[in-house]
Amino acid sequence: MSKRIEVGIVGLGKFGFSLGEALAELGHDVVGVDMDGGRVRHAQEKLTQVFQADGTDKKALEQLGFKDFDYVVVSIGRSMEASILVALNLQDLGVDNIWVKAVSPEHEKVLKRLGVDFVVFPEQFVARQLAHRLAVPGLLDYLALGEGVLVREVVVEKWSGKTLRELQLPASRRAQVVAWKRVGERRFSFVPSADEPLNKGDVLVVLGDAEDVIKVTG
């Protein structure tokens, strides 16, 4: 596992709770805050610590040690005003990394003006993931980096007998092979050899610019 981190989450609705649960399952410490007693009880068995408190109360966040966490995620329903207030309070407390769920483009614009470290639209992100999975055969993941990065499986056909060095994918296709599974094998090998010939039916995991990776055929 990577370095254990401490994450505070303000707002334990669907997104906040799911994020906290996933982080806890990865072995990280997660402290959640929500005003709703039902949400607090629901999260108690999953997160490291959960408190029923007003996330817009700067003093409460300070007393709960939020200024010392590696990251704090703000996930407050659909209240843009409350979300912005929490972000401002966290900045006043000196929190190093503040991530905020946005509810509208206007909300995102304000958060970026405030200098929030990372802003996310969960619905938009999931919609893009699904759109790419539907449209691109073999797609494993869509990474929202810049204009978008794809991770896609490509089955070797016409590249049979060639090596990755000969193919020169980084130069010719702006793509990089990050894993390789030979025919008949169950597991992928990572950081594949550049000089080993490919065989028909081998599976390559290719990462790169979305527009280029979509066009890659093996």
Rank of each mutant, 00 (worst) to 15 (best):
E106F: 06
D212P: 01
P137M: 04
S104P: 02
A53I: 09
A135H: 02
V206A: 05
V183D: 02
V30D: 11
K58I: 12
V7F: 08
F188A: 06
E81I: 12
L85P: 08
P105E: 07
R173Q: 15
L140T: 00
Q91A: 14
L134T: 06
V177Q: 09
R186C: 00
G184S: 06
G32M: 06
K101T: 00
V86H: 09
L90S: 11
V95L: 04
E153H: 11
L47A: 10
Y71P: 01
D92I: 09
Q49R: 14
V136C: 02
G208L: 08
D209R: 15
A210M: 03
G55T: 12
F118L: 11
S79K: 06
Q129C: 04
G146L: 10
T163G: 09
S75E: 05
F125N: 00
L64D: 03
V7H: 10
A135F: 01
T217F: 04
V206C: 02
L114F: 05
G11L: 07
V95Q: 03
D202T: 03
V120Y: 01
V151N: 10
F190V: 14
A135I: 02
V72C: 14
N97Q: 15
V50S: 10
F51D: 08
L207V: 15
V10C: 11
A82F: 07
V72L: 09
L145S: 13
E123W: 00
V7A: 13
H132K: 11
A102Q: 09
D70A: 10
L143W: 01
G94A: 13
Q176C: 10
R187N: 13
V126H: 02
R78D: 14
A194E: 10
L150Q: 07
G184A: 09
V149R: 10
E157Q: 14
V155F: 02
V33R: 05
I5T: 11
V31S: 06
L23R: 01
L145I: 13
G148H: 07
S193R: 15
V206K: 03
D92C: 04
